[in-house]
Amino acid sequence: MITFKEAYQRVLDYPLNFGVERVPLLQSTNRILAEAITADRDFPPFDRATKDGIAIQYSALVQTRHQFVIEGEAAAGMPQQQLHNAENCLEVMTGAVVPKHTDTVIMYEHITIENGKATIHETVKKGQNIHYQGSDEKRGAIILSKGTKITPAEIGVMASVGTSNVLVKGLPKVCTIATGNELVDIDTFPELHQIRKSNGITLEAALSKLSITSTSLHVLDDKQVIQKELGKALIENDVLLLSGGVSKGKFDFIPEVMEELGVEKIFHRVAQRPGKPFWFGIHKELKTVIFSFPGNPVSTFANYHLYFLPWLHTCWGIPVTQNFAKLSVELEITPPLTRFIQVKIERKEATVWAAPVDENGSGDLTSLAKADGFICLEPKDAVYGVGELVQLIETR
């Protein structure tokens, strides 16, 4: 049995390369950029009016008076208009190109218009209410870096620079595999000795947040059946995510079958709770990585976030970030196991506080719906005190 830190590092030591692909912009949500996006022109591309009102030449305001004859108007979408007489003004709308020979915009709220003339009632500052060309980004500037996760905000940015198709990191082919004779379909009412297939559904839902559409498989506790089905799955997928079959029970065949299928065991059993029986390996010839999690729901869910997600980020070449929270209560964690405790978090000003949720062990599926994530507590002699900073793994 190895420590959590050793297991974590060994998992990250076996990344895969899934390549890149170009997809339509609207299909890129939650994907990872595989190219830098640059501005194809200045942003904004022209001096832009930020208020509805009038555009004037500031020097005329200083040298003459506060009343200006209105020559015409400039609206958004119109080519640049021109002020012909420096002592006059043009009405201008938000988003319009600031007219030629004008350099200041005064909003309607600060003027009155009567008989074709605009009278200014407020103090005016030269250049006010103008968003200047290139003040956001210059043409050619990198506006989205390679490795950025694409959200609706990034979609909007790329649309503004004409990126209709975008290069993104490739997605792995993933199969979620549940083992056990006790499992039945979720639309079946189980007998007293049965449970529904919740682990596989949970993993599929988690993968969908990454835009990964996985396949699923349920294998019974029969060694020959398991070997046949896993042998096929190894060939067809980049990643296998298993739940169950890795403990020390009489029908826990996964470690033995993996060895017979040519999978190299990297480790089996980690000094952690939940998820101690976790098995990890790789089929080097097929380039398939296997995460075999314990069958308890909390164990499967925890190990997915503790190991698979950081591993996938490593595969994509993006940083694995660490978050922290302060404890709301004292906790004692005695050797030798690293503990992952489900918590509810509360944000107060700039601080994140974590408080344990009530749970009844790693089989308590309903506790997952109460928690925002896990805190990582290494074993130590002293208690973890209130306010102590600990690692936080958010799952929401």
Rank of each mutant, 00 (worst) to 15 (best):
V390R: 06
K149T: 10
S135R: 05
N85A: 13
A49L: 06
P172W: 10
R196F: 04
R273G: 00
N237W: 08
A74R: 03
V62C: 00
D40M: 08
L392P: 09
E109Y: 00
E35R: 04
D185S: 13
Q194D: 00
N199R: 03
I113R: 01
L167N: 09
H305Y: 15
M258K: 08
T102I: 02
V352T: 15
C175H: 11
D238I: 10
F4P: 03
P319V: 04
T202Y: 06
F46S: 08
A159N: 05
V98Y: 06
Q67E: 14
W316H: 11
S243L: 04
L220M: 13
N30P: 01
L25S: 01
Y304I: 02
D47G: 00
H313L: 11
A355P: 00
T119I: 01
A206Y: 02
F278T: 08
G77E: 03
K197I: 02
Q133C: 07
N115F: 09
H218S: 07
E114R: 12
W279G: 08
F308V: 05
I54N: 02
V23Y: 10
T119C: 01
H66G: 12
N88L: 02
G72R: 03
K149M: 12
E182T: 07
D364S: 02
V157L: 14
H283I: 09
Q342S: 07
K250W: 06
L12N: 05
L90C: 09
V263T: 14
D222V: 11
L210S: 07
K173I: 09
Y304D: 04
S299W: 08
V320A: 03
Q63P: 00
L377S: 06
Q194P: 01
P310M: 04
K265V: 14
T102Q: 01
D221E: 06
V157A: 11
K380N: 08
I333D: 07
N165C: 07
P356H: 06
E346M: 07
F68W: 05
S216C: 09
Q133M: 06
I333Y: 08
P24M: 06
Q9R: 15
P45T: 00
N360K: 13
P15F: 07
P45S: 09
P379I: 03
P379M: 11
E109T: 06
I37H: 00
T351S: 03
T213L: 06
V69Y: 11
V239N: 15
A178Q: 13
G116K: 12
S145A: 14
R347M: 13
H305P: 02
P255N: 10
V270Y: 03
T102F: 00
P15N: 04
G19V: 00
G170H: 11
G180W: 06
L312A: 07
L207P: 04
F340M: 08
L192P: 09
D222E: 11
D187H: 14
G72I: 02
D358C: 12
G147R: 05
